[in-house]
């Protein structure tokens, strides 16, 4: 079962690419020109996240190297061990609702700390890939039209985030442990 699912993971990306290309061919869309045009944005996106990434990665590196994070993680360790959650991933569960760039920074830190093929990295990657930053989206979208009373929007978003974290823990332990 797991073998089949991992195979499916491998096929999703090429299938999407093939589908997009064949559809473009059928509609006579200039695929190459479109590709080149779209790819230009890759550079600006990567550059744009640099300052955020530096801020977060410096913070997390300092927290770790100074021993400050050990205090918090030792307190949480019994609960985390019980749920089979690597202690390094606790920070990313907090940042994912606050800032997308921060989450990427924490992911970079976890890779650096535990290695790219570790379970902690995979769990953190799934958490980072499956979330959007609740507070950012709320402030941009409601702020743009001057809504001041958010009613239940934030609460629904945060509850969904919490469900997402638990789903990530269970799905990952099933796939990767």
């Amino acid at each position: 079962m797991i073998k089949f699912l991992n195979l499916l993971s491998l096929y999703i990306l090429p299938l999407i690419i093939v589908f997009i290309l064949i559809y473009a061919l059928a509609k006579k869309t200039p695929a190459y020109e479109s590709f080149v045009d779209g790819a230009k944005d890759g550079f600006s996106i990567a550059i744009k996240i640099i300052p955020y990434l530096i801020a977060i990665m410096v913070c997390t590196a300092l927290l770790r190297a100074s021993g400050a994070i050990d205090i918090v993680q030792n307190l949480l360790k019994p609960v985390l061990d019980f749920l089979k959650i690597p202690v390094e991933t606790t920070l990313i569960m907090l940042t994912r609702s606050l800032s997308g760039s921060a989450t990427l920074g924490v992911l970079g830190d976890i890779i650096n700390q535990t290695g790219v093929n570790s379970y902690a990295t995979k769990l953190a990657a799934v958490i980072a890939g499956s979330s959007e930053t609740t507070f950012y989206v709320a402030s941009v979208y409601f702020g743009s039209v001057g809504i001041k009373k958010f009613k239940h929007a934030l609460l629904a978003g945060i509850l969904a985030d919490i469900v997402g974290i638990f789903a990530a823990i269970f799905v990952c332990s099933w796939f990767f442990l």
Partner: peptide, 30 residues
């Protein structure tokens, strides 16, 4: 870690550009 942050950002450029290019085809073809 400050240096590492810049390295990570730069290492993203290739794959981000590739994916945004593919998706642009999907956008333009309707």
């Amino acid at each position: 870690s400050a240096t590492r942050a810049v390295q990570i950002s730069f290492s993203l450029i290739g794959i981000m550009a590739f994916w945004l290019g593919i998706v642009k085809i999907a956008q333009n073809s309707g």
